[in-house]
Design a protein around this nucleic acid. Structure first.
Lengths: 337, 337
DNA sequence: TTGTACGCGTTATCAT
DNA sequence: ATGATAACGCGTACAA
């Protein structure tokens, strides 16, 4: 049986109140007695019971990190950064992989809220839907704890958004290709999430603003998992076979871009001379291929750092801005001229 | 303020004991009253306080998942599978990224144990060191909760190991190359962890058993992060430049193998005609390159599934075998003949 | 079948 | 500066 605060207080010859004060550093206690108590704590290797503590403090300093799939390249990085940052600030992380179903998300959130987390971090823009009624569960959750959004934005009390300017990023990516003389740019995407929609509109607006507004036939949705590269390659081959002509490809994800690269290899198309490719997320995939992939860097580490800073602010009673937007960066590599 | 069991009992016109019984399904309660209580619970959307509950039950049904770096391709997959499996069985996951320092691991484990997790899952063989004194912290932790090892093995009461036969896997990989006529096989590795050591000895034994025991000059340790593909490529170029001749490469990780592939591209070496490459972990990287990478599949999903099954057994008082070993599978793709 | 009363190990509020 | 004691919300013997 583990020792309790009573045992320690008895052995140290003080009351439990004093032990508690020593433990939590509040209230004042004479240096001598503090030393004595600390020595006993040390000697018996005492650790306060977390549950009882949580009961008193109404918190176990735990944050729920929710994401659809923590094995996804980008989400995994985000989760990793978040966990490290939270831990460094004395919080632990409850990881929840919700999958992509709305109903599962709802259930999971309710469950996790009942475990008394201090806040919820929703990682990935798929948590925000274009259909307003599908976001109701977030409003509801926000009534209990602050909700932090990574890579998405939602206007609601007690919801804080940290994200990258995806629209501008894709606008720039498309503009660069256009300026280099490419007019037929295929746009590949695999998600209609908040950020997915922003990216697409960035592409559309860039095309439009360069007088290439007639591009709907160049926009293709890939309905599959991003880690099935071969299926992606086949998908792009089919697009080309259908007679669609393109000399540039912008993809909403590096995986799609890798698929594009493999399509080019398969067909003997020279990159970047005959075809330019730009991916997104600047993941490790960009350096796994030949030539290496030009990609949009969405500055995950900056985002996660800022998100945690904001969260700490909220938890300590401050009122930080509800939204922080970072500009993206285009990292040029071998698949563009 | 959230409702308590007292509020519910009052509204339902019963005692808290009855509410508790309804909630936990033990003890018998008349169907009629059960219905009544359930209706009230439903109506007020009552959830029992987790801390108070944990106090009584001495458990919050939470498992600590520890890994060095959850953004690593392989570890991320493992964490994902584990979390899903645990969740499906009513347990939540506290994620802990410990980094690769022993001292950090120790601190983190103590911290997490004080949060009253029901068990600890150590993901990745880097938790077990060749130096016995560095494993003492595990023996100690095992005195408090069952310790589950993924991809490592350690003989100690209350420690359960689930792993792949890495030795046999590498033995087979090397044997296949040798049988295809390649005698000078470069072995690349980046970790001296439990599994890293096993793999290396599998390679050594295969070489020896084919009369190629003089291979120490072909064994190279890469001291760096696996996601820096370019640095890996440079590393291998240097090996070749130093005059080391090889017509086969076996790597302890797919990233290293990708680096090898890029080395070949850079030097205009034809794969697999002039050089065969075998990676390890069968990650998504295997399909990102051209030709696609032959790799050892360590059956992560089987392992994680079995690990959780074993854990549930332990937690329910059974005494499952302390070690389960799975055979690996070699997945042949384009980098071998 | 149901209810009463106590224990769980803290934190926090009072006195002293 | 320190100690007694009341919450905190639930589980569970034990009693009825």
């Amino acid at each position: 049986m583990a020792l309790t605060i009573y045992d320690i207080s008895k052995k140290a010859g003080v009351s439990i109140a004093t032990v508690s004060r020593v433990l939590n550093g509040n209230g004042s206690v004479k240096p001598a007695t503090r030393e004595k108590v600390l020595r006993v704590i040390e000697e018996y290797d005492y650790t306060p019971n977390a549950f009882a503590r949580g009961m008193g403090l109404r918190s176990l300093r735990t944050i729920g990190i929710l994401c659809a799939d923590s094995s996804d390249l980008v989400l995994a990085k985000a989760v990793y950064f978040l966990e490290r940052e939270l831990h460094a600030n004395g919080y632990e992380s409850l990881l929840c992989c919700t999958g992509y179903q709305l109903s599962d998300r709802k259930n999971y959130i309710n469950l996790i809220l009942s475990k008394k987390v201090d806040s919820l971090i929703l990682v990935g823009s798929n948590f925000i839907s274009a259909a307003e009624e599908d976001n109701e569960y977030i409003r509801e959750a926000a009534r209990q704890v602050p909700i932090m959004l990574l890579n998405a934005s939602y206007d609601c009390p007690n919801v804080y958004s940290t994200l990258c300017d995806d629209h501008a990023a894709m606008f720039e990516a498309a503009s660069i290709l256009i300026r280099s003389g490419i007019q037929d740019i295929l746009y590949l995407y695999d998600s209609n999430s908040y950020s997915g929609v922003k990216k697409l509109s960035g592409y559309r607006d860039a095309m439009k603003s360069h007088g290439l507004g007639d591009c709907e036939h160049l926009i293709r949705y890939y309905d599959g998992k991003p880690d099935q590269i071969n299926a992606i390659t086949d998908f792009i081959c089919r697009i080309a076979d259908d007679g669609t002509v393109f000399h540039g490809i912008i993809a909403s994800d590096d995986s799609l871009a890798i698929g594009a690269l493999k399509y080019a290899h398969r067909r003997g198309i020279d990159i970047p001379r005959e075809l330019s490719i730009i991916g997104c997320n600047n993941s490790m995939l960009t350096s796994c291929c030949e030539p290496e992939l030009t990609s949009v860097d969405n500055r995950l580490e900056d985002l996660t750092h800022t998100l945690v800073k904001t969260l700490l602010g909220v938890l300590s009673g401050k009122e930080p801005p509800a939204q922080r937007i970072f500009p993206a960066r285009l990292i040029k590599r071998g698949t563009t001229v």
